[in-house]
Design a protein around this nucleic acid. Sequence first.
RNA 1: GGCCCCGUAGUUCAACGGAUAGAAUAGAAGUUUCCUAAACUUUAGAUACAGGUUCGAUUCCUGUCGGGGCUACCA
Length: 603
Amino acid sequence: MKTMTIERKIAHAVSEIIANETGQTLQENSIIIQKTRKDFEGDLTLVVFPFVKMLRRSPEQCAELIGTAVLQNVEEVDTFNVEKGFLNIVLKKSFWLDFLNNNVDNQCFGILKTQDRENTKPVVVEFSSPNTNKPLHLGHIRNNLLGFSVARILEAAGHRVEKVNLVNDRGIHICKSILAWIKYGAGETPENTGKKGDKLVGDYYVRFETELRKEVQALIESQGVKEDEARKNAPLMQEAQDLLRRWEERDPEVMEVWKKMNDWVYDGFDHTYEQMGISFDKIYFESDTYLLGRDIVIQGLANEQLVKKEDGSVWAVLSEYNLDDKLLLRADGTSVYMTQDIGTAQLRFDDYHPKQMIYVVGNEQNYHFDVLKKVLKKLDKPYHNIIHHLSYGMVELPAGRMKSREGTVVDADDLMDEMVERARKTTEELGKTEDFTSTEKEKLYHMIGLGALKYFILKVDPKKNMLFNPEESIDFNGNTGPFIQYTFARISSILRKAGEKRLRDATLELDAALLNNKEISLLKNIHSFANLLPEAAREHSPALIANYVYELCKEFNQFYHEYPVLNEPNGAISDFRLHLLKLIAHNIRNSMFLLGIDVPDRM
RNA sequence: GGCCCCGUAGUUCAACGGAUAGAAUAGAAGUUUCCUAAACUUUAGAUACAGGUUCGAUUCCUGUCGGGGCUACCA
């Protein structure tokens, strides 16, 4: 143990004094040390209530006793004060100065490197997982940003990470858009229409639904059947199902159209992913994996882990888990969604032998994943307990969830374009880019627009539903991405003005007594990042990082307003502040990197 | 019907069971001879309701009310 954190040192001292007093040993993780709240004097606070009974003293006496012991045994501690049942510990100013000293040249404070990559089992993070029958929308944006950011956070926390995408490129829904294109497409292509491939295919998916609804309506009126009955029997639906059968038989004619249309979609997706700034290490296609799932199920049946009903359909019996039985193969032998997921899980396990497989999938599929894990357990698969469903909340509109039928879907490309446009407009109104080249401008507007969007999405706790109001544009002021980018640009501007030589020659020989509260507060913030990052990794929560970096920037702006850096007459203080700014800048950049957001040197 | 999730300022979001529930935005009032005013300062405003557990509850438990999701031989 080379570097023990100050929190652990204190916790250790606390457990010792309690052991001395009572003869009881308590686990160090039962000692609650938190950051002291703003309104009180101190850096760290110990809640002493848990020890009151053991020590048989009043809370104040306990705090006094523990405080004295900590003061004696931990050299970094300067003083302490007792406020109700809370022991507030003040660290020496030199502790903070040393902290800066030790980390000013560390561009990656708090970031852990994966040791021995070759021999480390990876965490596989699956996200995005689009269907190839329609373009990406706002819901996918949350999924993509979340998955990408969580992958970066895990990596920064010392894990080896593999990002994978599972493209849902087969099934009845895909056949629907293919069929509509064959019937009504009149040879339209992305080239001859100028339309983005995924949009074009999506249009035909919508067209299918429109035409189907007409047929269903007609059936209901002429034969008086119920709607779901009519949907099943409608000629178009029959044709789509026929197309699916032909696809499963690898009918060359169908395969050709399928391939062609999927390629259009992939071109479209590539563009969307690029705009979003996300990428994958590997892409899986369900068309390659669904048969594997079927084989596993058949094997499971042979092993008597699954059961076959009279009609020939295959089921997992899950009554022992209080879940309904789950169908895995239809009577006609075709696969369902769950069957595919069994196959992809197996393949992923074989490919990576991961220590964990994370699936970034909306919370509407909570039940599905509960069942998946149980089915895999039933099948005796070793990986059933390394599956983690990173279940995130939906993005809702003021009127409720997005519905493609009602045309309320917020398109991913459109939204990103709007954000970039607004960044352009706002920046130009402020007249900040007059001396930028046009390339620099485009880059900046993209950075700001996407920064605003990403931060807006990621600052919300992933588990919770969130609201997006298309009427109100995403802000550039306040608790936003651009605010953080702006703060970074401000710091960069000072560092730029200082010049390389000045930065290189700057000394750190300040009398610690000269540190002011704002400076200590900033150092304290950054110091806490080392604890925050592992927590964000554990919780799979970019929101923790977002809130952290916002707090840091807010703090910096207050400092910036109150204290000069380059204009500070005391050279030692000025030098110190330059170092402080460097550390802050690195930390902001790193934090934003974890969110997948770039920061500009000027804006 | 059964199962699960969520109700915090006008609005959008915070708060390992810990101190006086934080921010942002919208509202009101201010700050540019000074390193970028996308900033800063001041001000007003909230835990759906009723019980319980606890030294202490926005947080855990029970009930009521309100919102959402799942419950397919769809994905």
